[in-house]
Amino acid sequence: MNPGGLHWLAYPWGGGRERIVRIGDDGATPLLLLAPLLEEANRTRHFLIQTMHGLAGRGFCCFLPDLPGTLESSVPIEQVSWNDWHDALACARAAIGRPFHLASFRGGALLDGAVEASSRWRLAPAAGESLVRELIRTKMAADREDGQTKSAAALEVHARSEGLEVSGYRLNAGFVSGLKTATSSAEGSVRSLRLESDPLPADARIAGTPLWRRIEPSHDPVLSQYVVNDIVEWISTCANG
């Protein structure tokens, strides 16, 4: 089988099924990838799929789940709570059926503590608070175009009581509140990588484009290759250490 081959599997959730993209051979080391959240997931999709192909060529079998309410999911996002995403990952884990390592990107790192994993690798992990701030910021810019001027604080109060409709996502109030207080877990073996332009603490820094902020989905092959090499090296250190 071509190690870069792409397959689909599914995990049961909420009475239906959600999709998992699988790239890699059956016997290869399993690695679960958690994508950035919401619009950032679309912007980085191509990058993630290409990175999965790269990892498949280096002995990994990569799994990338759709979260309920996103991508191919048939569940409307407005019905999804923040905790549902934790539950969904527990179901995805059962569907994969064997221990795996984790690689999460941006807001995906807020979910990687919900599942048991041999190790956790993160690229530019984002705190829930800063993601909510960006959502409010996007909402403000859209409102300003429509001639409305609510303060950031007023918008956030409204979002946490009535929900928030932004960039085509109708997020319920519980989801916004859950995301706002979400932080990533520091337990176990964790390695965090950040771009050179990002001032937050990290184990290592790399040059690259913040694809998750780019308005049109784009790719950075050099960054992808660096990510592949770093994950391979990190997991081999975890396995030997």
């Binding site: 619009e39 910021r137 996007t138 810019a141 859209a142 960039s167 332009s197 990002d198 902020r213």
Partner: peptide, 14 residues
């Protein structure tokens, strides 16, 4: 566009 403004401001902050 308005979608890009948020990313632009946050990236400038960083």
């Amino acid at each position: 566009d308005s979608m890009a403004v948020a990313g632009l401001l946050t990236e400038i902050e960083d």
